[in-house]
């Protein structure tokens, strides 16, 4: 009997998504009292659509862990902007672009996509998606630290996405 377990996790992700969407509705309507009753229509409809378009995977997203990562991510993405601005304004244009391949332990599509998006906002790196050899990362300047930095970043995000320690990928 695996059915009850499956439906429980489905209910949990539905509740999580409904809470997020409800919050979005409140913010979008500016907390206006007149718009409040419509939440009974919009949130269930949006939750159903979201479950249909992106069914929850076997590894749940830990929202609180993700939120906890946000301040650090903001600081690093500011550094990313400063780095690009510095290179853009520098008279000699210090850009030596190159590609590196990075193996990733992110196993499902959404986790990998978010990891790629995060990478693209960090200093000097830009993700161009995955292939059989892992992720393709474009660097403004290939240095020895790039791989280490990406590894640390991946470790942080992998915990928020409950990715297991297992190596390789199972094409989720």
């Amino acid at each position: 009997m695996t059915l009850p377990a499956v439906s429980f996790s489905l209910l949990l992700s539905a509740l999580k998504r409904a809470a997020l969407l409800g919050l979005a509705w409140l913010v979008l309507t500016g907390g206006e009292f007149g718009a409040l009753p419509y939440i009974l229509i919009t949130v269930p409809a949006a939750t159903a659509l979201s479950l249909l378009l992106l069914p929850p995977g076997p590894r749940p997203l830990r929202l609180l862990r993700l939120v906890a990562l946000f301040p650090g991510f903001l600081v690093r993405s500011v550094m990313g902007g400063v780095d690009v601005a510095w290179r853009a304004f520098h008279p000699r244009l210090p850009v030596k672009p190159g590609w590196i391949h990075v193996e990733t332990r992110m196993q499902d599509g959404p986790a990998r996509a978010l990891y790629g998006a995060e990478t693209s906002l960090l200093p000097g790196t830009l993700s161009a998606g995955c292939d059989a050899r892992g992720m393709k990362i474009h660097c403004l300047e290939v240095t020895d630290h790039t791989r280490e930095r990406l590894k640390i970043e991946e470790e942080r995000l992998a915990r928020a996405f409950s990715q297991d320690e297992a190596q390789g990928r199972d094409d989720g």
Binding site: G109, G129, C130, D131, A132, D171
Partner: peptide, 10 residues
């Protein structure tokens, strides 16, 4: 869908 494209040509 680039992921799908790449799956065809490993």
């Amino acid at each position: 869908d680039p992921e799908a494209d790449e799956a065809e040509t490993p």
